[in-house]
Nucleic acid binder design. Structure first.
Lengths: 341, 341
DNA sequence: TGTTAGCACTCACAATAAACGAGTGCTAAC
DNA sequence: GTTAGCACTCGTTTATTGTGAGTGCTAACA
């Protein structure tokens, strides 16, 4: 088995750089001409033969040039790749997306995803979540009109969510504050899972004792439960979906269809985006992907943790022949501007 | 110019029905064999020649069968088409989607879209809107924690929306009710457009008179304005996007890319879905479409008006060779179950 | 011992040609 | 008015032949 050396590394890098641009197998003569290694094509041919034996490149057929293998990309990403410096315009765009400070975290993630999609021309998946389970802190009812009331739930994480309820009977204004306070007192620190049938029965009992038997406990409780559930729910969306169709790798209709189907289902997006540590950029190359339809793609992803309360995830999807250097430096920039690193 | 008659109509219908299934040009012999018109292929050939002269069918090249033209589809949709009866299973699915009565209108539209996409295998665009401009009816502040308050806005259409604000200074609990009531009194009946600079100055003045000079009027006003704007905003989304790739019409990569790009932009979706009268099903065939990328598609759409307050729009997109009968009967069912017709 | 020129060989891809067949229009007979 | 028959058209399929980029190997060279 041949041994890796500086020169082989350089040739591998040349192959990868060229292949990222052209998506065509690279021959020895092309490299000899294009790069000034001071070597003839024959020498490069020998080295490429070694690289193939070592598994870093593949010859699609006997008389073609070489393309990088997953293993080759892996070596490149882990050792060779030089971080590409962001161009001023790209930087500007990211900073713009980030500087809308008033905006809620959810919108930050959306803005980020759009900016990254625009810069890189890849497909981006973004999520935003509240990482802790919400507990009820305060509950308030507001009369809207007749039997219609607004239910406001404020959680320990200071999230505020409301829901409009139509009650079976009009709740008199005089009781509203009393009921709100009672609900707050009784339900403080509850999480979504607490809202069982037993719990409901218990609460009905409490209310009866306080002389509030007319309060439609069930309706209110199930509304609160739904609010808590939706708060804990992670939002996920993909942007730049059609970008992936611009790559010759997906000129095949079957593949295009498969990837489109994949990207349309929220559950799949969750599966793709999840699983890495905060602040760390993870690169998953080709066959390393669990998802069958992504075996010819690479995914570069990062988890963004903002003061431990919110976090978002960003995943960039492209063909294995993707511009790792560009994407990683953009992602690095996102992380550092968001204050993660 | 030949004249249309019963027999030509039947042959046109046969051509369309076959073409919807196969996407292949239909020859005279195929029709003679398949349908029991009691006519030889030669006679049918003559009739088809007439249909071509009249512009209802097209021969892609000299020695091929015929395919329907946009004009042919138009005639078929307007006159010939028999409403396909919904199968029991399809009906069941629609009813299920509709019977979640507690669910907000927005979710109904989403459920509907999913059900229709599932039944028809076409791409569906759905919108939901509140058709009137919201006016402020009631405003309430709730203390959350320190300088953080929840702003609750209730509109004349009984929509409730909230926003969390971080005020520059803590607002004492004793003032909360007073400020809430003052805001309600002063802003009742305002719409989003009212919130000008002049308006803000006026309100600041009012507050000062009431001895409430510390209230951060600007922050609160701009938050209310944003809430009103977002309430008036129409939600739009597409489901079953990848379905359209399953049609041979989009086997061409260029077309696939174009349609994907189209469906990814919300503005485009709005443009496609808009413009028809409530309760009426509109069919736009091929070249009749304004959007260039839809010139080879048909769009079947309906506006759903629920008691004049909310409305939704549903558009089904497919190749011109789409199953008009099926889609229209499904849409009819949606409309009648929602009580529009 | 590493490098390189030279050469035979491979193989995807493009171009050309030939065979096929579904379908047409037209004519003449029923 | 309908239909059988037939020559003709033309897209599609299959086979054939070049073409060229690229390889591996050998032998000569520094």
């Amino acid at each position: 088995m041949p041994k890796m050396n500086e020169r082989k590394m350089k040739i591998l890098e040349a192959i990868i750089n060229d292949y990222i641009l052209t998506a065509e197998p690279i021959g020895s003569r092309t490299i000899a001409r294009k790069y000034d290694f001071g070597l003839s094509s024959a020498t490069i041919r020998n080295e490429m033969s070694d690289l193939e034996e070592m598994g870093y490149v593949i010859a699609p057929h006997t008389s073609s040039g070489r393309i990088p293998s997953d293993k080759g990309y892996r070596l490149y990403v882990d050792n060779v790749m030089k971080k590409r410096r962001l161009e001023a315009a790209e930087k500007e765009l990211l900073i713009q997306a980030l500087q809308r400070q008033e905006v809620a975290v959810q919108n930050i993630m959306r803005e980020m995803a759009n900016a990254v999609a625009f810069i890189t021309n890849y497909t981006i998946i973004a999520t935003e979540t509240l990482s802790k389970r919400h507990k009820v802190k305060q509950i308030q009812l507001i009369l809207v009109e007749g039997p219609i009331v607004a239910l406001i739930v404020i959680t320990d994480q200071n999230a505020v969510q409301n829901k409009v309820l139509v009650l079976p009977a009009v709740l008199p204004q005089s009781l509203i504050k009393k009921v709100s306070d009672a609900l707050t007192a009784m339900l403080a620190d509850s999480v979504a899972e607490d809202f069982t049938h037993l719990y409901a029965a218990m609460l009905r009992h409490h209310f009866r004792e306080k002389g509030l038997e007319d309060v439609p406990v069930d309706i209110i409780l199930s509304a609160i439960r739904e609010i808590l559930l939706s708060l804990n729910n992670t939002q996920v969306h993909a942007v730049g979906i059609k970008n992936i169709l611009d790559f010759p790798e997906f000129a095949n209709l079957e593949k295009a269809r498969a990837i489109m189907g994949l990207l349309e289902e929220k559950e799949n997006l969750h599966a793709i985006v999840s699983g890495q540590l905060a602040g760390e950029i993870q690169v998953i190359i080709g066959e390393e992907n669990e998802t069958p339809d992504l075996k010819e793609c690479s995914v570069i992803k990062a988890k963004i943790d903002i003061d431990g309360q919110y976090y978002g995830q960003l995943a960039i999807i492209g063909p294995t022949r993707m511009n790792y250097a560009q994407v990683m430096s953009v992602l690095q920039m996102v992380l550092s501007t968001l204050g993660v690193q």
